Simulated assay, not measured.
Amino acid sequence: MEQNTILQEQIRILTESSKQKDDIISELTTIISSQSVQKTAEENTFENIQTDTQMTVKHLADEWYTNYAEKNHRETTRNSERLIANRINHDLGENSLQTISTITIQSYVNKLSEKGGNLRTGNPLSRKTIKNYMTYLTNIFSYGVKYGYIKDNPCSDVDIPKINGNGETMRPKEIKIYTIDEAKTLLSTLKHVQFKYQIFFTLAMLTGLRRGEILGLEWNDFDFDKCNVRIKRTSNYTPIEGIYTDVTKTEKSQRFIKIPKELSKLLKLYQNSQQFDFRNRKGKGLEIVKTDRLFTQANGKPMHPNTPYKWLERMCKKNGLPFYGVHTFRHLNASLQINAGIDAVTVSATLGHSTPTTTLNIYSHCFEENKTKSVDIVNTALGGFI
């Protein structure tokens, strides 16, 4: 009797276990089936997007610009993007996204590196410019992937050619910097020119500020007692916006920097001179715009960003000096700091770079030269043991 009871209990347990097993299998089958249906639906939805819209590269670029670039990029960046978009829309704009592949983009990039890539000069585009084109294309196609217009970004495996159509290795453009003697000659020459240009280029050389940062300076940014200046705005120009005020290039670009006492004295003299000119103009009944900016037009309106460049070009030509553009003063300042043994972190903070890595990348040649000097310094400190 007892044995029958035990046997019946074992049969019951086995039966329940079998039933649970069947239930589990049934549930797993249902889940897998559901996932398969969902995946198929998603694929069908994706295919429907492609089939129904037949979106072109231009349509995607316009949507990206409206929904992303206008809300996240500075006007100077958007102006560059508009120029690139004009070229790309002409070359690829009418192509359906369905026809764009990695080989399509690779062929296009190769074409930019050939003769005629630069529509103005007929030469190949520079490697830097081609990188800008690639950045733009990568951005719009990444947007397309994110919102389901395409499955993959066709730019992912594209390589920028290392040799252009002229058979030349595409290296970064060599940075031209004034020598110490040239810089001294230039500073000496500036003592005999219009006061505001003397101040502008002396500031550029001694502080390493960007052109837009100098043009954005206002008198209340200076603390002449502490000999420092706060950088917190820029003045820029685009054909659409005209001359306008903007934030600095990056968050790290907002900074305080020290200025020499001699420069502080010169700036105060310039401030008095500027105020005298404004009063004189107002006394003649001429238009004057109230402003706190250091660098303005005669009527007080902000100076056009191209004005210092064109003035310097004319001045250098007149005095037989080499002309390397306005940005070269920033490079000169950086190289002088590095050659003086200032570390990359400090140089980066002074220049307003986003990270010290940026400084190291741009001025790697200067730091390499300093490595050699550091070895000699150690050897000298040890009494020239070697």
Rank of each mutant, 00 (worst) to 15 (best):
M1V: 07
Q3T: 14
N4L: 13
I11Y: 08
E16H: 09
S17Q: 13
D22N: 14
I24H: 02
I24E: 14
S26C: 09
S26M: 09
L28I: 13
I31D: 04
Q35V: 11
S36H: 03
Q38R: 11
E43H: 09
T51M: 12
D52Q: 08
K58Y: 10
A61V: 02
W64L: 00
K71Q: 14
H73Q: 14
T76I: 14
S80H: 10
L83W: 03
L83V: 10
E94W: 04
T99Y: 04
T102I: 00
I103Q: 12
Q106C: 04
V109N: 01
V109A: 00
S113R: 01
G116Y: 08
G117C: 06
L119G: 03
R120Q: 12
L125S: 08
S126V: 02
K128R: 13
T129S: 06
T129V: 14
T135W: 05
G144W: 05
G144L: 02
Y147D: 13
N153S: 00
P154D: 01
C155W: 02
V158A: 00
M170V: 11
R171G: 06
K176I: 08
K176F: 04
Y178R: 06
E182K: 01
A183K: 04
K191Y: 01
K191S: 09
K196R: 15
Y197T: 11
I199V: 15
I214C: 00
L215N: 02
E218Q: 13
D221G: 12
D225S: 11
K226P: 08
K226N: 12
I231T: 02
I231P: 07
I231Q: 08
I231C: 05
R233S: 13
T234W: 09
S235H: 11
N236Q: 15
P239L: 01
G242T: 11
T248I: 08
T250V: 05
E251R: 10
I257L: 09
K258E: 13
K258R: 07
K258Q: 10
I259Y: 01
K261G: 06
S264I: 09
K268P: 07
Q271E: 15
Q271F: 11
Q274C: 06
Q275N: 14
R279L: 11
R279E: 14
N280A: 07
N280W: 03
L286P: 03
D292T: 13
R293I: 03
L294P: 00
L294V: 10
F295L: 01
T296G: 06
A298H: 06
G300T: 12
P302T: 14
H304V: 09
M315L: 15
C316K: 09
C316A: 14
K318E: 15
N319R: 10
L321A: 04
T328W: 02
A340W: 06
I342F: 03
G352S: 00
T355Y: 00
T355M: 10
T359A: 01
T359N: 03
N361D: 15
F367R: 00
K373Q: 11
D376K: 15
N379Q: 10
A381R: 11
G384I: 08
